[in-house]
Amino acid sequence: MSSLLKVSSLTKKYGNVTALNNLNIELESGHIIGLLGPNGSGKTTLIKIICGLLQPTSGEVTVEGNPIGAESKKVISYLPDTTYLGKSASVKETIDYFCDFYEDFDAERAYDMLGKLGIDPSARLRTLSKGTKEKVQLILVMSRRADLYVLDEPIAGVDPAARDYILNTIITNYDEKASILISTHLISDVENILDEVIFLKQGNIVRFCGVDEIRSNEGKSVDSLFREVFRC
């Protein structure tokens, strides 16, 4: 197994606030990894650095051996935690835009998922509800044939039935070569599809292990362990 993502001694400071403190992470291909932590633990900061939207204060991140840049962006499909799509465009226009922009975009797959979730491609994004907009964004992101999917809170605004469908889409569509990094608070919904979890606490990694290890060593679910580690 080759290393897909390598984070070495990564530190990020905002002024005198340390958001990430000397992180070391190595992810292999073909895994689904949960990035879990309470609000303000540094999840989004880490994700933004991996996706090249923030510069680290020190340390290094490489994707398939390349530093963060044009090469890494080609193989990473990123779902941000905010909307960035043009509101006046229709879903179809947005798909066309993605087709032009990404070589690895599979429009057929996108239309197939839209159909299953009952979303009308001719609808303008402005007219969609918050949850439906989130579904569209996730569909766009998952329709790329990327090597690393980075999903920042992908299912937070989506109803439970669609959540199941989306998780199922993730399981059935990702190929053995790709890995998925998911940040979320909804641990009990996703934990059965995860291989590994990273617990982030105030910019430090407090756990990085396989989910079945947690279950067999501690006799509890990832959700209960999370509640225990981060008890307020």
Partner: peptide, 14 residues
């Protein structure tokens, strides 16, 4: 593996 993983709603690796 994929069909079973999907039916059981678990990760294919599992």
């Amino acid at each position: 593996v994929r069909e079973l993983a999907s039916a059981a709603a678990v990760n294919p690796n599992t």
